[in-house]
């Protein structure tokens, strides 16, 4: 009798080991409804001071994209979709006049979030007025000297976002807002 009880207890122990964790969060099958690695999207406690604004619409990194994209209107140059291997989310790029907006989703594709805005021409500028083609000095005048310099870029970081200016021959050639992943 003792043996039977012990056996039953062992079996139950094997099956339910780890049940202390939340099932939805812990479910390992990488299906659309239960991504193995689905994690709550980090949300910045305070909004970053670096955000892109176009026609009065503000884009903050890691903000939910759909309501903002609706305000921006249909991207005149279309979109590009890049599904992750084995359906673990989709990255999308929306092509607007003068800038590209990048979003990501987790496994279920229900919500998408901004992770990059890339300025493509001098038809648009940063919220503080720096455009492609401006002198490097203007970047420093506008944003200050508190930047890190890497790979010919001046990188300004705040909260979950960074603003990067690529400088070639003293001029801004690329501007990009991007999300700092893992930053809360």
């Amino acid at each position: 009798m003792k043996m039977r009880i012990l056996s039953a207890l062992m079996l139950v122990a094997i099956i339910f080991t780890g049940c202390g964790k939340d099932v939805a969060e812990n479910s390992p099958a990488p299906t659309p409804s239960t991504s193995a690695a689905s994690e709550p999207t980090p949300e910045a406690k305070t909004k970053s001071k670096y955000y892109f604004e176009h026609n009065g619409v503000k884009i903050y990194m890691d903000d939910e994209a759909k309501p903002i994209l609706e305000k921006l209107g249909d991207p005149p140059f279309g979109t590009f979709e890049s599904p992750s291997c084995a359906f673990q989310g989709i990255d999308r790029t929306y092509y607007y006049n003068g800038f590209e907006v990048y979003t990501y989703t987790e496994g279920d594709d229900d919500k998408e979030y901004f992770f990059t805005v890339r300025l493509m021409s001098d038809a648009v500028s940063t919220t503080e007025g720096v455009s492609i083609g401006d002198k490097a000095e203007k970047v420093i005048e506008t944003y200050g000297k508190e930047y890190t310099e890497t790979s010919n870029q001046y990188v300004y970081a705040d909260q979950n976002s960074k603003l990067s200016f690529k400088i070639v021959n003293g001029e801004v050639t690329d501007i990009e807002y991007s999300m700092i992943f893992g930053e809360e």
């Binding site: 140059f77 279309g78 590009f80 890049s82 790029t93 092509y95 590209e100 990048y102 990059t116 890339r118 493509m120 890497t150 790979s151 870029q153 990188v155 990067s164 690529k166 690329d174 990009e176 991007s178």
Partner: peptide, 11 residues
């Protein structure tokens, strides 16, 4: 079709 512009990398 049109591919996204390569993103800037820190490193």
């Amino acid at each position: 079709g049109r591919l996204p512009t390569p993103r800037l990398l820190d490193d």
